[in-house]
C-alpha cells in the first residue's frame, strides 16, 4: 500500500472557471522525496493544498495510509492534518509574534483547544520547541519577533514549526522561491535531512529544475493542471524540458 495516493483529483475554481487540476493521479511511497515542477500557475500549489484540504478538491480522492482524507469530517480531518507538516513560499509566520509562539503553533493539533486558548502549552512542548529551534540553528532568536528575521531565517522557523508536528508527510510549497540561491540550498538541506534521518516523506514544489535534480528522488511535472512527466530526475532531457516549460525556456542553473 502506498503512503499517499492521489486518485483522479480535479479542482475547478468557481470564480473565473479556471481548471487548476485536471484528473491527476499518482502515488508516493514512504520515505520518498518527490519534487513537483512546473511553471507558475501549473497547479502545484493547488495540488499540495488539496492533499491536506486547505482547498477542497472538486472531485477525486486522496488517501493517506489507506484513509480517505477527502471523505473525513472536519474534526477527523484536523486529527489527520497534524501528521502532515506544511511549509510555505511566503513562510506564513505571524509577523508580530515571537519565534517561539510561531513554532509552538505547530502543536495546536495535539494540545486540547481549552489549553491553547489560554496560551498554556505543556512543558514538554516547550522543550520540543527548543530542540526544533536548535536543530534549525535559531535557538538564539527564540524570543525575537518574527518580522525581525531575514527571509532564510523565517523559513527555518517555518521548518521548525513543521518539525513540531512530528509529521509523517511534509508538504513544501515552493519553499525557496522567495530566497536567494545560497539560502535556498541551506533550506532544502534541512528538508533532505528530515527526509533521510526522520524518514519523513517530502512533497516539494520547486521552480528550478536544477534544484529538483539535486534533491528529488522522483519528479512529477505539471502543466496546465495535468501530469506531463513522471520519473527519475535523470530522465528529463532537453525535449522533456521544453515540453514542461515551453519552447522559449532556458535552463537556469541554481548552485
Amino acid at each position: 500500500m502506498p503512503h499517499l495516493a492521489i486518485d483522479h483529483l480535479t479542482k475547478i475554481y468557481e470564480r473565473g472557471k479556471v481548471l487548476a487540476l485536471d484528473d491527476v493521479s499518482f502515488s508516493v511511497d514512504k520515505g520518498e522525496f518527490l519534487v513537483l515542477i512546473g511553471l507558475s500557475g501549473s497547479g502545484k500549489s493547488t495540488l499540495l493544498r488539496c492533499i491536506n484540504r486547505l482547498i477542497e478538491p472538486t472531485s477525486g480522492r486522496v488517501f493517506l495510509d489507506g484513509t480517505e482524507l477527502t471523505a473525513l469530517p472536519q474534526r477527523e480531518l484536523r486529527r489527520w492534518r497534524r501528521k502532515i507538516g506544511m511549509i510555505f513560499q511566503q513562510f506564513n509566520l505571524v509577523k508580530r509574534s515571537t519565534v517561539l509562539a510561531n513554532v509552538l503553533a505547530g502543536r495546536l493539533g495535539y494540545v486540547p483547544t481549552a489549553r491553547t486558548l489560554l496560551g498554556r502549552f505543556p512543558r514538554e512542548d516547550l522543550e520540543r520547541a527548543r530542540r526544533a529551534l536548535e536543530r534549525v540553528g535559531l535557538l538564539e532568536k527564540m524570543f525575537v519577533r518574527a518580522d525581525q528575521l531575514s527571509g532564510g531565517q523565517q523559513q527555518r522557523v517555518g521548518i521548525a514549526r513543521a518539525l513540531m508536528q512530528e509529521p509523517e508527510l511534509l508538504l513544501a510549497d515552493e519553499p525557496v522561491s522567495a530566497l536567494d540561491p545560497a539560502t535556498s540550498h541551506s533550506i532544502l538541506k534541512y528538508l533532505e535531512q528530515m527526509n533521510r534521518q526522520d524518514g519523513v516523506t517530502v512533497l516539494c514544489a520547486l521552480h528550478f529544475l536544477s534544484l529538483a535534480r539535486r534533491y528529488g528522488t522522483r519528479i512529477i511535472a505539471l502543466k496546465g493542471g495535468r501530469i506531463v512527466f513522471e520519473g527519475s530526475p535523470s530522465e528529463i532531457d532537453d525535449a522533456k524540458f521544453k515540453e514542461i516549460y515551453g519552447e522559449e525556456a532556458e535552463q537556469v542553473e541554481v548552485r
Binding site: N52, R107, Y110
Partner: peptide, 24 residues
C-alpha cells in the same frame, strides 16, 4: 498566510482565531 499555516497544523476554528488572527 498564517491562518492557512495554523489550519494546516490541525488547529480548530477557535485556535485559528487565537493564533492566526489575534496576534496580528
Amino acid at each position: 498566510g498564517p491562518l492557512e499555516a495554523v489550519a494546516a497544523a490541525g488547529a480548530s476554528r477557535l485556535e485559528v482565531i487565537r493564533y492566526g488572527i489575534i496576534p496580528q
